[in-house]
Design a protein around this nucleic acid. Structure first.
Length: 572
RNA sequence: CGGGAUGUAGCGCAGUCUGGUAGCGCACCUGCUUCGGGAGCAGGGGGCCGGAGGUUCAAAUCCUCUCAUCCCGACCA
């Protein structure tokens, strides 16, 4: 492709609404353009990268035996009503009506549609196993779209669905996808971890997320330094030490803590560590139940664990007036002593002795509180969030904390959708069985963004070869110089003939702008053709990843480059 | 959904407090000079100042409503 005939609208300045590197760079390099909040046009350059990722995904899905199809984006409401998710899914589901006032939604995921397809076409266990996938635009009306392609409302996703006769077969389908995902993200040149994850509102029994490690990641994950254990903090367990709890130092004592509300304030005021406090969180469930949760002062509540324990959909912190009513004190002084509601405690509270809690009275806390003597805990459970330094639940190792970008997610769905929608097959005995399903997603655009997040410097993107929009950039320093133009054009054509994806910067621009654009756009190999070096019979090759420059004889340049591209692709 | 902020040329911004008919940088077009890391000079094009209503002789500027965009929060008492 000749840049003089291409559309690559680069920007010198960062757009005001781009916060993180990948978003800024994708905007500046002209890969994407925003049309509305969380909705983007993929410009020619951006689309090429997207297509690269799609192609890798496609190859690995096909290799794993999955079949590609394409489902509609607009889905009739009745299908979602049948699964029960029309009511459950909430505002993220964009609902629309056609001219006859029939209700539809824009598909945020396609369990219903695929299950409908399969129930109508698969009748016998002999048609199994089956794994169907598509690469398609999805729409989720996110609360807060942000970070460009990272959390858009419209986005490109690969979603696959497996169907099996029993759970053993489904497990093996899941393993196949897990392996395929490892290959996919390795091939994309990404540094990632597969972590155990919560299943969220897709439902199902177990799942793994594939997380690209990056500071800007929206998810917190932990991994063990001693074994393979890795999990999203939403799900992560921690090893609990079984200490013998010492008795209290003395009787419970009320102390004045004027205006000290937060754990940090109280601890600082009393001159003790956070771990000597127990915080009391008052929460309300979606069923209107009220519970108190006790946590060690330096620990944090994991709402997902709490919801699972309480078998509810959602919990939230009690409103100020509810706190006032339950504790008789304003927010900031709640404590478990004499609290008139159900009290749950995290397992680590069990090992605490002689701690400090709110006194259910304004500007006061209790010291020397003893769990058995002073507090009526109704039950203990794993309710807190894992954090760096916690013990690994599987071995003697220690957990480390990371930020991650979720680029892929695999779920075991079980029979949730097949039962709801009546997707059954006859087994070998002629009996009707619900299909056991799995579903497997990959955010395509997000994978491109994550790759940029992980591969850039202050000058721009540093594309990994497999997902780079072009493999080689041939830069004609001065295309008005006949020798330069002829050498550049000739190298360009030769490379194209050899199957190299090459972009020719034949624009009549000053060298400075061309170099800046080259760095910004981040094509892995840059070949500079200048009048001076050409007289010496060489061109200059620079790798974007390390900035190293070398001279290559003009007549050998094409072969040399073909070699380098091939090497870079095989390295992944 | 709560809090905060911002909408002025393709992009980044000033002008708004104190009302007087719109400006800067980049980008774009023309010409000349330049040409190995975002050139210089000269000339030029481009704006219903987010939208609607109001106040006023006069509104980008003041008032009301609305729409959009961004940030923070929606978890630690």
């Amino acid at each position: 492709m000749r840049l003089s005939q291409y559309l690559m609208p680069t920007l010198k300045e960062n757009p005001a609404d781009a916060e993180i590197a990948s978003h800024q760079l994708m905007m500046r390099s002209g890969m994407i353009r925003k049309i509305a909040a969380g909705i983007y046009t993929y410009m020619p350059l951006g689309l090429r990268s997207v297509r690269k990722v799609e192609q890798i995904v496609r190859e690995e899905m096909d290799r794993a035996g999955a079949l590609e199809l394409l489902m509609p984006m607009v889905i009739p409401a009745e299908l979602w009503q049948e699964s029960g998710r029309w009511e459950q899914y909430g505002k993220e589901l964009l609902r629309i009506r056609d001219r006859k006032d029939t209700e539809f939604c824009l598909g945020p995921t396609h369990e219903e549609v695929i299950t409908d397809v399969v129930r109508g076409t698969v009748k016998s266990y002999r048609q199994l196993p089956l794994n169907l996938y598509q690469i398609q635009g999805k729409f989720r009306d996110e609360i807060r779209p942000r970070f460009g392609l990272m959390r858009g409302r419209e986005f490109i996703m690969k979603d696959a669905y497996s169907f099996d006769l029993d759970s053993a077969a489904a497990d093996s389908a899941y393993d196949k996808m897990y392996q395929a995902y490892q290959r996919i993200f390795r091939r994309c040149g990404l540094d990632f971890r597969a972590v155990e994850a919560d299943t969220g509102n897709i439902g199902g029994s177990s799942s793994h997320e594939f997380m690209v490690l990056a500071e800007s990641g929206e998810d917190a994950i932990v991994s063990c330094n001693g074994c393979e254990y890795a999990a999203n903090v939403e799900k992560a367990e921690v090893r609990r030490s079984a200490l013998d709890r010492p008795g209290p130092d003395g009787p419970m004592e009320k102390v004045a803590t004027p205006g000290k509300k937060s754990v940090a304030e109280v601890a600082a005021f009393l001159g003790v560590g956070l771990a000597q406090l127990v915080k009391t969180l008052l929460l309300e469930t979606d069923q209107g139940d009220r519970v108190a949760v006790l946590l060690r002062g330096d620990h944090e509540l994991n709402e997902i664990k709490l919801c699972r324990y309480l078998r509810c959909q959602h919990v939230q912190l009690a409103a100020d007036d509810v706190v006032q009513q339950l504790t008789g004190a304003p927010v900031g002084f709640a404590g478990p002593v004499g609290l008139p509601c159900r009290i749950l405690a995290d397992l680590d509270v069990k090992n605490m002795a002689d701690f400090i809690v709110g006194a259910n009275e304004v500007d006061a806390h209790y010291c020397h509180v003893d769990l058995d003597r002073d507090v009526a805990v109704s039950s203990f459970a794993d309710l807190r969030q894992a954090q760096a330094g916690d013990g690994c639940p599987r071995c003697a190792g220690t957990l480390e904390a990371w930020r991650g970008i979720e680029v892929g997610h695999v779920f075991k769905l079980g029979t949730k959708y097949s039962k709801a929608l009546g997707a059954t097959v006859l087994n070998a005995e002629g009996r009707e069985e619900p299909l056991v399903m799995g579903c497997y997603g990959i955010g395509i655009g997000r994978t491109v963004a994550a790759a940029i997040e992980q591969n850039h410097d202050e000058n721009g993107i540093i594309f990994p070869m497999p997902i780079a929009p072009f493999q080689v950039l041939v830069l004609e320093l001065n295309p008005k110089d006949d020798a330069v133009r002829e050498a550049g054009d000739s190298l360009y054509r030769t490379l194209q003939d050899q199957g190299v994806e090459v972009l020719l910067d034949d624009r009549d621009e000053r060298p400075g702008s061309k170099f800046k654009d080259a760095d910004l756009v981040g094509i892995p190999i840059r070949v500079t053709i200048g009048g001076r070096s050409l007289k010496e019979g060489v061109v200059e090759v620079q790798l974007r990843c390390d900035g190293e420059t070398q001279q290559v004889a003009v007549e050998q340049a094409a072969d040399w480059l073909v070699q380098r591209v091939r090497q870079a692709l095989e390295a992944c």
